[in-house]
Write a protein that binds this DNA or RNA. Structure first.
Lengths: 220, 220
DNA sequence: TTCACTAAAAATTTCGAGATTTTTGTATAT
DNA sequence: ATATACAAAAATCTCGAAATTTTTAGTGAA
């Protein structure tokens, strides 16, 4: 296994887990020491991450951690509603029983975790597995849409959306409503009601749609 | 000016102008000789192009020119309909007179070129300026949507769409219909009729939607 | 033939040093 | 004080060689 894969994954995880200051420059020469490799290798990893949209690149001025703001989160949410709505509707039409089975399974897994979180005192340990299960559910929604392009765009948007989530959002205060939301999305999708499914996906994400252009971090 | 910018632009133009075999590997060591620089510089340029989606990158197996197929073109068209429809509707709501003026100007420019092409015998010389004018018109449509994210996604999709166009599509046999289409999109947008605008954008792009992979696109 | 294994070739990736560009800091003039 | 110009520092980008990995070609066994 290449060392670069490790560095790519390490940087990726840190970027999504908000282990960098938002808007900060990512200087290859500095990160080099921290990760024990050459600056070029860091540079490579950063290019790959910028393909995923997790870092931004500008000619002659290097890489940066994307800014975080309510406005950006709202924009990404808007794109999620658009892409997940479209992808799910197409999955309803093309997915057949196999897709319904996969979706039901993904929901079962997610709802199991969400109920455990709902009952737990310390939610910190669930963070990673919940994120994975939630991602799996939403990816399964669009998995039978028949468009690689749509799925790729969604993966990009979803990753950046995740990156924008505030720490406050990770305390699972919303989990009770989320259990309902996911249940309703599943039911709507299985019923074949396209308009209702779009609506439920929108409602699920709606709390992120109320963005001003500037967030809590007042940057420069 | 850096040499890399030249190489980036050169490769970009060649990729969009279909100067490579689709699906072919892009080997830095080979392109190096052709462009008179080191393999690393080529590699850099290819990473930047993969951010734009104009080349694909896979770990440990380098870069490739995206495959070309009716199915991929249909998928990209579908995304254009979705993103341009949404962006234009938002522009109608938020753009105001300034946006209407910019859109009218962009359309005037485009329609001037299209009428010249329609009248001309040799259309080859118009290719580049038409592509630029058409891009400008469609970017102006969504320019007042208020979402950087939407515009970035659209730029990515639009570039790949352009890359997918067959040479046959460049003989401007469609130009007569296109003049009408653009006129109708403009009129619908200026009238403020959101549903009609979406419809006209869809109709304009519909001839690319007949791929084998994807069925009818999902309607709101 | 077909499959598995190995060796050689070719391609990708890493590396650090040097070249270029941007950024920062300081002095000077308005 | 604000702005401009210049020099120093720091960062980005380029390069070619070396290390690693993948791909190709060839050999032998079932």
């Amino acid at each position: 296994m290449t060392q670069d894969i490790d560095i790519y994954d390490a940087l990726r995880h840190r970027l999504i887990a908000n282990g960098f200051v938002h808007g900060a420059k990512l200087k290859a020469e500095h990160l080099r020491a921290e990760y024990g490799c050459s600056a070029s290798t860091i540079r490579e990893a950063l290019f790959r991450l910028s393909i995923q949209g997790l870092v931004t690149f500008q000619d002659q001025r290097g890489f940066r951690v994307p800014e975080r703001s309510k406005g950006i989160l709202a924009e990404l949410t808007h794109m999620r509603v658009l892409l997940e709505g479209e992808g799910t509707v197409l999955s309803i039409r093309n997915g057949g029983v196999a897709w319904e089975a996969r979706l039901t399974a993904a929901h079962h897994q997610l709802s199991h975790i969400e109920r455990r979180i709902h009952a737990a005192d310390d939610t910190g340990a669930f963070e990673d597995i919940w994120f994975d299960a939630e991602r799996e559910f939403h990816e399964t929604l669009i998995s039978a849409c028949g468009s690689v392009t749509l799925k790729d765009l969604h993966a990009n948007v979803y990753g950046r959306f995740r990156q924008q989530l505030m720490v406050a959002d990770r305390s699972f205060g919303f989990i009770s409503k989320n259990i309902e939301h996911h249940q309703e999305i599943l039911a709507a999708a299985l019923s074949g009601d396209e308009a209702l499914t779009r609506q439920k996906i929108h409602d699920h994400l709606a709390r992120h749609l109320t963005g001003e252009t500037l967030g809590e971090d007042a940057k420069l």
